[in-house]
């Protein structure tokens, strides 16, 4: 009877081992957005192209869209842009830009050089909407359904793999629901 207690350390060790094994290969730095399943936070910001035009959450309602957070000062955004151009042309997905903590001239310079994949661009020089969205480093890309509810967030560069494995399934599901 008493000997059974001596097996206790073994059992504990194996249990710990299972969790450690499960943790291998997962990226521990990956964070889910808390906004998933919640509507996009209220905002009222200028359009990048047209300072007179005020944009709010109604912009993101009506159809499924990608909300891409970018800035001229962000090196990964330069890498990502080519693929966004392809997405907007070939895949016919609606991409809304969120120009994050940037200056207007810099943003225009960036777009003139690389092209403009965005249907509309929200100008957020203070990073207010970005902060409310929990953006902690550009680029980030949100999938937003037709009701303006956040369905997914990807942190980092969007490329072929991310599009096929992460974004597209979510978009298809969001389209199916509405």
């Amino acid at each position: 009877m008493k000997r059974l207690f001596l097996f206790l350390p073994l059992i504990v060790a194996i249990a710990v081992g299972v969790f450690l094994f499960a943790g291998i290969g997962k990226d521990p730095t990956r964070l889910e957005s808390v906004l998933i399943g919640k509507p996009v936070p209220e905002f009222s910001l200028e359009s990048l192209n047209d300072p007179e035009r005020r944009l709010d959450t109604s912009l993101l309602k009506g159809e499924v869209s990608l909300l891409n957070v970018w800035a001229e000062w962000c090196p990964s955004c330069w890498d990502e842009h080519k693929y966004l151009m392809r997405l907007s042309k070939d895949k016919g997905v609606r991409i809304v830009g969120l120009n994050y903590k940037d200056e207007r001239e810099a943003a225009f310079r960036f777009l003139n050089q690389l092209g403009n994949p965005y249907e509309t661009i929200i100008f957020d020089p203070k990073g207010k909407l970005g902060f409310d969205l929990g953006v902690y480093g550009a680029p980030e890309t949100f999938v937003i359904d037709a009701d303006g509810v956040v369905q997914y967030r990807h942190v980092g560069v969007v490329n072929q793999k991310v599009w096929e494995q992460e974004l597209l399934p979510v978009i298809n599901k969001a389209k199916g629901n509405s």
């Binding site: 964070l31 808390v34 902060f131 929990g134």
Partner: peptide, 8 residues
């Protein structure tokens, strides 16, 4: 802050 960035 948690409501924006999560419990993390």
């Amino acid at each position: 802050l948690v409501s924006r960035f999560g419990e993390f």
